[in-house]
């Protein structure tokens, strides 16, 4: 069994739940930007939740299945077509040998996840099949899928017609709200800027990818004056190069915040004002450029409560797809 790629879409990559344990060497965890959607897609086709799927951003690929199989598409909303006939999203469906899977235009969100029973079975590197193009790890020879690729698929079996109820499909609102725990170098900006950051409406900049999402439109941040520490560099937004958390918000020059995502650089010399909480990281993966965003200040208790709520949703999806 294999998937033959006819058209790759804009940027379609093999992703799973990533490769933890190498961030200290600058190799990020990677894996699906929207992990809940990848887990759901896998459950729908009877796979382990961490099996490898295709993640397609903004535009779907076109592919042929080489044997009878079971597929499911989750994540952003994009019409799914089997030999041209539309099939439901967030629902498993059978595909016959030789049938063509294609997609219409994206109507909501940014990324879709295509799961196939058995999971994509390319060679894992450092414990994962996730594509990390910068380091040429995972994927197809370290890269995104291309026309003509034949992706091997493992053995699997599942039931068509399994579905994730509408209420459990999480989407960003408008404006999207991203909850932030202030910290790290939060003390480097003035109180007025601390307030402005949360008061202002931002929008997703065109520079938004698996490494990080850039935002613009809010007021520039003002720094508390200080003599720059030795080794940091002369700009007030510089620090002695240190580690970057996933979800951390750096603001080079104080102007455009960048939230680091799954393919994050592991460190660098820009100060950070805090981090997006773990419960909201999946949402970022579903943001398109130019959509309005508000950052919402939360404390640790609220962050942990949000995390528990997200786990509860996953448990409901598990129950619905059992």
């Amino acid at each position: 069994m294999a998937l033959e790629i006819r058209k790759p879409g804009l940027l379609t990559t093999i992703q799973d739940l990533g490769r933890p344990g190498y961030f200290h060497l600058g190799i990020p965890i990677g894996g699906a930007m929207d992990r809940l959607s990848l887990r759901a897609a896998n459950r729908l086709v009877g796979n382990p939740e961490d099996a490898a799927c295709l993640e397609a951003v903004f535009m779907g690929p076109e592919l042929v299945v080489t044997e009878d199989t079971l597929l499911a598409v989750t994540g952003g909303e994009m019409p799914v077509k089997l030999d041209g006939a539309e099939v439901p999203t967030w629902t498993s469906f059978a595909a016959k040998k030789g049938q063509v899977l294609s997609f219409g235009y994206l109507t909501d969100g940014a990324r879709i996840y295509i799961a196939v029973a058995g999971g994509i079975a390319t060679e894992p590197m450092l414990g994962s099949r996730a594509t990390y193009a910068i380091g040429a790890l995972g994927g197809v020879d370290g890269r995104a899928v291309a026309a003509g690729d034949v992706l091997p698929v493992g053995d699997g079996a599942g039931t068509p017609g399994r579905t994730v109820p509408e209420a459990l499909r999480r989407r960003p609102g408008r404006p999207a709200e991203l909850r932030v725990l202030p910290g790290l170098y939060w003390h480097r900006i003035t109180e007025a800027s601390q307030k402005a950051f949360f008061d202002d409406e931002w929008s997703v900049a065109p520079e938004a990818d698996r490494m990080g999402y850039r935002f613009r439109g809010g007021r520039p941040l003002e720094f508390v004056e200080r003599e720059q520490p030795f080794g940091a560099g002369s700009d007030p937004s510089n620090i002695v190069d240190g580690c970057y958390p996933y979800g951390s918000i750096q603001v080079p020059g104080g102007t455009e915040p960048i939230v680091l995502h799954r393919d994050a650089v592991s460190g660098g010399g820009y100060f950070m004002i805090g981090a997006v909480i773990s419960a909201d990281m999946d949402l970022i993966g579903q943001l398109q450029p130019n959509v309005p965003v508000r950052f919402q200040r939360v404390d640790m208790d609220a962050a942990l409560k949000a995390r528990a709520e997200r786990t509860a949703v996953l448990d409901e999806i598990r129950a619905a797809t059992a």
Partner: peptide
Amino acid sequence: YSHGGDEHIFVEMDEEMS
């Protein structure tokens, strides 16, 4: 010491390099 979201803790030994 600082929390970096709910999944990280960042420890700065010193502001300057040595």
